[in-house]
Design a protein around this nucleic acid. Structure first.
Length: 906
RNA sequence: GCGAGGGUAGCCAAGCGGUCAACGGCGGCGGACUCAAGAUCCGCUCUCGUAGGAGUUCGUGGGUUCGAUCCCCUCCCCUCGCACCA
């Protein structure tokens, strides 16, 4: 309340009628549509974002290219604002920058849309691309459109086919019958990675996936499993979550493969990671679809019934049926019963396992249910030289490593050693590695994709189409159920490249993830006619320095791209084994905590926002709302306040341009000047880190400081302009159009997009100390005024501590003497302060461990002097910053380094 | 269950050993301007305090430390990924 009244004291102090200007501004609004269009055209005319082929090693900034679905959504806008802002930042820092855009243009939605609209996928896709290109331009994204790629053009997809042939030559392509995931809705197969969650839903349409057996083409990514796994450790620029997801997906496990001899059937291979527990194996279990189970089911009704009806691999309960057979434990020679059990999965390990109920939770549950022996053979490591004692396994299994017990000559060994010994000692046992990763099935029974370049000949079988006959182009679209290529009979008819006989074309097309596994290489030389990419230039320009996209591609696209890169490195002379140095997985744009989706009807249209507020507002709001990797809520209020901010900034710049102020280069100017430096230093570091939210916060703070400056006094023109110019450039990566406009207004040469990034030499630590000092001092004054109930201060003295206190503080920090006061008193100039020295010494002693250096006395004086206007402005009273030498003794008692004494006259 | 990331004032969100009762924004409150409203500007927004003080706070409970929002451990909750994985 006290402070409220004070406002009247300094009303009207202002150098000019700022409020009037604001009022006119807000009535007029700012004409974002005109401004934005003007600069988009200007950039385009001047080829600002072109990256010539002859640059040496540009900073490669890339957003995951979009599927052309028709309209940009907020996720796209966020994704591409991040890359655009970063690319623009790097460009202003003087880097050559490669920032291209293209289209992931093959895919089922185009086929569905074509059917619905009675058109064809190509026309539909081209339309979508056109619309989205316009939208991207209206957002002000600065791409090198000369490098645009579109994967559904033969120019692009011929290289998918060419690469397929190269993979084939390297033995990385295989065709085989396989149980595959079949989406009945999409009428095509899906890779394992494209099936989501426990319910096994199609990643595109969320239809439950079925199993089918089909002849399929596979790329043998498993050949690279080890390298793909091990190189994850070096991907330090990637988020941990993504790295971990890829590790899990590859799922490598080291263990032992060994044979159990099953009565009547001979040796059966089992895989285990815990061969050290083999003495506790009390039964053997087969998957329901294991060949032996299937054979048994032929003869045994009980087993038949179990396999066909009861087995439920998805249920929580382990179910099983006894076969009456026994298996021989290769370590002990013991005969143990064989079960068919549904918790054994045929695609894990070998589909058969030795079960050790004492040391495995699942085996334990099954044994309890079936009344099978539970025999502990691993004990926890005992303390000291005590004997190991068997763990209690009646309730649950003991699954840790430990010391072997009741294990014949292996008793007493630790688990690790026992595993090595047993693997060596058991005849049929050998070390083995299992992976969860499967080969990548790329066959899709769809039209709108890259035709697999293969011809089927009755005599020669499947034959690769020779390179000179590539591309195999898609025929005209036929609107039919199932795969349109199956209906394209004429297209199918061809001759065998090997024997010349009549033959038919392969009608499967490639998974569109093939397209995206190398598109980042095509941008390097998009028009090259005799190779997918220019090898030399790719070696110079790759890898992508900063890649940005959604987390949903953590496994699929990002793993396949790594795989392709490694294959190209091994066989095509690419000198990089990883495609993406730094990866940012951007967060979602939500509405009231929920993901935006058409089905929920909570979608905010970027187009509407651009129309109402402009692209700059949309971009700036998004970038300041949260760190790029975090989810955040869209907020209409937030957008409005961002818009208002831009309007105010424009008012500030226009006012300056209309009439140059004529203030002095005084203490206030030096404060503003220091704040400009501080802002530049901090914002630059934050831009480097892609933490735009923090960079923008600093920048907006500076605008506030500048406004307060101009409100308070007539600014020093040079300082003020430097501040405005810094703000404009710091904002340029995120709000590029208005930045161009204001840069122009301030008389900048050329484009701000090509202007030099502002620089400042300041120490962030120094800035923090200075700001802290000023802030603390202001707070202290507020406290005093408040607590003491001072209505109307007449004058405020801020008194810097005497030099000897700084000396004493320094000594206190450095000293480790028990008696600090004694140590201080050894200094003559401190000792002569008498009681004051003793008092301060006691204070220091009390806070001994918490002391830290403040600014030097002169720096502190200067900082306070330059910030005095803030205090005057706030409290409406003249402020004197006083050096210790000019102050009274009794006042000085309260002054400490970093904490000036305060005297308020009321 | 395993793994990754989180839990900070009414909400969003910085901070990640002392300078922290904790930046900033939104919301709310008071004031300036206005005939008024809006916009804009200045403050306030954990509790108590007549000169900068004190108390209680950063999911929970412990611990390390002279000192913890910040480090370690337990537990709870949220989000994401994987999962009868042998």
């Amino acid at each position: 309340m006290v402070r409220a009244k004070r406002a009247s004291v300094w009303k009207g102090i202002g150098w000019r009628p700022v409020l009037e200007v604001y009022k006119q501004m807000s009535d007029a609004g700012y004409d974002h549509a005109t401004v934005e269009r003007r600069w988009q055209e200007a950039w385009d005319d001047a080829d600002v974002f072109r990256t010539p082929d002859n640059v040496e090693d540009p900073t490669y900034v890339l957003g995951m290219y979009p599927y052309p679905s028709g309209k940009l959504h907020m996720g796209h806008v966020r994704n591409y604002t991040i890359t655009d802002a970063y690319a623009r930042f790097r460009r202003m820092q003087g880097d050559d920058v490669l920032h291209p855009m293209g289209w992931d243009a093959f895919g089922l939605p185009a086929e569905n849309a074509a059917k619905e609209r009675d058109t064809n996928p190509r026309d539909w896709t081209v339309d979508c691309i056109e619309t989205m290109t316009e939208q991207m331009e209206s957002m002000g994204f600065g791409y090198d459109w000369d490098r645009e790629i579109t994967t559904c053009t033969p120019d692009y997809y011929q290289w998918n086919q060419w690469l397929f042939s190269r993979f084939h030559e390297e033995g990385l392509v295989e065709r085989r019958d396989a149980d595959v995931n079949w989406c009945p809705h999409c009428e095509t197969v899906l890779a394992d990675e494209q099936v989501e969650g426990e319910a096994e839903l199609c990643w595109r349409c969320e239809t439950p996936v079925e199993q089918r057996e089909l002849e399929q083409w596979f790329l043998q990514i498993t050949e690279y499993a080890d390298e793909l796994l091990e190189d994850i450790d070096d991907l330090e620029g990637w988020p941990n979550s993504v790295r971990q997801m890829q590790r899990n997906w590859i799922g490598r496990q080291h263990g032992t493969e060994l044979e159990f001899h099953v009565e009547d059937y001979g040796p059966v291979e089992a895989f285990t990671t815990r061969v050290d527990t083999i003495h506790g194996a009390t039964f053997f279990a087969l998957a329901p679809d294991h060949p032996i189970s299937e054979e048994l089911a032929e003869e045994d009704d009980e087993i038949r019934r179990f396999v066909d009806h009861e087995a439920d691999p998805d249920g929580d309960e382990p179910n099983g049926v006894e076969t009456g057979l026994t298996a021989t434990n290769p370590a002990t020679g013991e005969e143990i019963p064989v079960y068919v059990a549904d918790f054994v999965l045929s695609d894990v390990g070998t589909g058969a396992l030795m079960a050790v109920p004492a040391h495995d939770e699942r085996d334990h549950a099954f044994a309890e249910k079936m009344g099978i022996d539970i025999r502990p053979v691993i004990a926890p490591e005992p303390d000291g030289d005590e004997e190991p004692t068997a763990p209690d396994v009646s309730e649950s299994a003991y699954t840790e490593d430990g010391v072997l017990i009741d294990a014949a000559e292996y008793s007493g060994l630790d688990s690790e050693t026992a595993r090595e010994r047993l693997t060596a000692d058991i005849d049929s046992a050998e070390e083995a590695t299992q992976y969860q990763l499967r080969d990548w099935g790329i066959s899709r029974q769809r039209y709108w994709g890259t035709p697999i370049p293969v011809v089927h000949c009755d005599d020669c079988g499947p034959v690769m189409v020779p390179d000179e006959d590539l591309p195999v182009e898609l025929p005209e679209f036929i609107n039919t159920t199932g795969n349109p290529l199956d209906a394209a009979e004429e297209w199918q008819r061809t001759t065998c490249p090997e024997c010349g006989a009549d033959a038919t074309r392969e009608t499967d097309t490639m998974d569109t993830f093939v397209d995206s596994s190398w598109y980042f290489l095509r941008y390097v030389s998009p028009d090259l006619e005799d190779a997918p990419f220019d090898r030399e230039r790719a070696n110079d320009w790759m890898p992508v320095d900063q890649y940005v996209g959604g987390i949903e591609h953590a496994v699929m696209h990002l793993l396949y791209s790594r795989f392709f890169t490694k294959v190209l490195a091994d066989n095509e002379g690419l000198e990089h084994r990883e495609p993406f140095t730094d990866l940012l997985a951007q967060g979602m744009v939500q509405l009231e905590g929920e993901k935006m989706s058409k089905s929920k009807g909570n979608v905010v249209s970027p187009q509407r926002i651009v129309e109402e507020y402009g692209a700059d507002t949309a971009r700036l709001f998004m970038m300041q709302a949260a760190q790029p990797e975090r989810d955040f809520d869209w907020s209409e209020e937030g957008v409005q306040s961002t818009y208002a901010f831009l309007e105010r900034l424009q008012g500030l710049v226009e006012e300056y341009a209309a009439e140059t102020p004529d203030g002095d280069d005084d203490a206030i100017a030096s404060y503003v000047d220091a704040e400009i430096d501080a802002t530049i230093a901090i914002a630059t570091a934050e831009y480097d880190d892609l933490t735009f939210n923090k960079a923008l916060r600093e920048t907006q703070d500076l605008v506030r400081t500048l406004r307060q400056y101009a409100d308070y006094t007539e600014p020093h023109a040079e300082t003020y302009e430097r501040g405005l110019s810094a703000v404009v450039r710091l904002l340029a990566p995120v709000a590029p159009h208005i930045a161009e406009e204001l840069y122009d207004e301030l008389g900048g040469d050329g484009f701000v997009a090509e202007a030099a990034w502002p620089t400042a030499e300041v120490d962030r630590d120094y800035v923090a100390k200075r700001r802290r000092l000023v802030e603390n001092t202001r707070e202290d004054i507020r406290d005093i005024v408040d607590v003491a109930g001072i209505e109307d201060p007449l004058g405020i003295d801020v008194v810097v501590a005497p030099e000897w206190k700084y000396d004493a503080l320094e000594i206190a920090i450095e000293s480790d003497a028990d008696n600090l006061i004694g140590e201080l008193m050894q200094e003559g100039h401190i000792r002569e302060q008498g009681d004051a020295a003793a008092d301060y010494g006691q204070d220091l002693q009390a806070e001994r461990e918490a002391l830290s250096m403040t600014l030097e006395p002169d720096a502190e004086y200067a900082a306070l002097e330059s910030a005095a206007w803030l205090i005057e402005r706030e409290f409406g009273a003249p402020v004197r910053v006083v050096r210790a030498a000019e102050a009274d003794e009794d006042v000085l008692a309260n002054a400490e380094p970093g904490r000036p004494a305060i005297e308020i006259d009321d």
